[in-house]
Every structure is written in structure tokens, then in C-alpha cells.
Simulated assay, not measured.
Amino acid sequence: MSATTNSTDVWIVVDPVQDYEQSLKILGVYGSRRAAEIAMPRLWRKLGLWRNGGDDGHLEIQRWRGDTLVSSREVEVR
């Protein structure tokens, strides 16, 4: 299904692929960028996604319209 002017925008929080052995993990789907940003620290802690022995890492917010990726933004989570 192609994106149209009437397609709904969604924001998806993902744990991006870090190496060839991993796959992208969808952590949540939200109706606005702000809601996705607010949820990120909670998702990070809840899922225990600690990398390199520390509490810092990166998650990504992807904006989709229909089946088209509109934008992607990496966010550092602490």
C-alpha cells in the first residue's frame, strides 16, 4: 500500500541494528513524535537494553506514512 495524502503518520521507536548478527527491534508505536520521545527512557529501562557495560545508548525514532519511511532520527538515551 503506497502512502497517500490521507495516510496516517506513525512514529516507531526502534532499537537499531548494531552489527550483522542483530535485527531491528520495534519497541513501540506512537501517534506523535513527542509521545515517542517521552516513552524512550522508559522503554530503555524496561527492556534492559544496556550496551558496552554502560547505561548510555541509542534508540531511533522513525516516522512512517503508510509504508513509506518519511524520516529517521537517532536519539541518545541515558
Score class of each variant (00 low, 15 high):
residue 59 L to P: 02
residue 20 Y to R: 12
residue 61 I to D: 06
residue 16 P to N: 04
residue 13 V to D: 00
residue 32 S to T: 11
residue 76 E to T: 08
residue 29 V to A: 13
residue 24 L to P: 00
residue 47 L to S: 13
residue 71 S to N: 04
residue 19 D to A: 13
residue 25 K to Q: 06
residue 2 S to E: 14
residue 5 T to H: 01
residue 19 D to K: 10
residue 33 R to A: 15
residue 3 A to G: 09
residue 74 E to T: 06
residue 26 I to Q: 15
residue 30 Y to N: 07
residue 77 V to E: 11
residue 43 L to R: 00
residue 7 S to L: 07
residue 77 V to G: 13
residue 48 G to I: 01
residue 5 T to S: 00
residue 1 M to S: 10
residue 69 L to W: 03
residue 74 E to Q: 05
residue 46 K to H: 08
residue 78 R to K: 14
residue 47 L to Y: 15
residue 4 T to Q: 10
residue 71 S to A: 12
residue 47 L to I: 06
residue 76 E to G: 10
residue 11 W to C: 04
residue 78 R to E: 14
residue 38 I to W: 03
residue 47 L to G: 14
residue 38 I to K: 14
residue 17 V to Y: 02
residue 60 E to C: 15
residue 46 K to T: 14
residue 25 K to H: 07
residue 18 Q to R: 14
residue 61 I to N: 08
residue 37 E to D: 15
residue 35 A to C: 05
residue 71 S to V: 00
residue 41 P to C: 04
residue 48 G to E: 13
residue 29 V to F: 04
residue 53 G to E: 08
residue 8 T to Q: 10
residue 3 A to R: 04
residue 45 R to N: 13
residue 24 L to D: 12
residue 44 W to R: 07
residue 61 I to C: 11
residue 1 M to C: 07
residue 25 K to V: 00
residue 5 T to R: 01
residue 20 Y to I: 11
residue 48 G to T: 03
residue 20 Y to W: 08
residue 32 S to F: 04
residue 51 R to W: 03
residue 33 R to K: 15
residue 43 L to E: 05
residue 21 E to T: 11
residue 76 E to D: 04
residue 38 I to N: 14
residue 35 A to F: 01
residue 23 S to W: 02
residue 8 T to K: 11
residue 12 I to Y: 02
residue 27 L to W: 00
residue 8 T to N: 02
residue 68 T to K: 15
residue 7 S to E: 08
residue 72 S to I: 03
residue 21 E to R: 08
residue 60 E to N: 05
residue 3 A to S: 14
residue 49 L to M: 13
residue 70 V to F: 03
residue 1 M to T: 01
residue 70 V to I: 09
residue 59 L to Q: 10
residue 14 V to M: 08
residue 41 P to M: 09
residue 55 D to H: 06
residue 20 Y to C: 12
residue 71 S to F: 01
residue 47 L to T: 11
residue 23 S to H: 09
residue 4 T to M: 02
residue 38 I to F: 10
residue 60 E to R: 15
residue 60 E to K: 06
residue 43 L to N: 01
residue 36 A to M: 09
residue 52 N to E: 08
residue 75 V to L: 13
residue 27 L to Q: 07
residue 78 R to C: 13
residue 52 N to G: 09
residue 44 W to G: 06
residue 27 L to S: 05
residue 50 W to R: 15
residue 24 L to I: 08
residue 48 G to S: 14
residue 60 E to L: 10
residue 74 E to G: 05
residue 57 G to V: 02
residue 58 H to I: 11
residue 9 D to V: 03
residue 20 Y to S: 12
residue 54 G to Y: 05
residue 50 W to M: 15
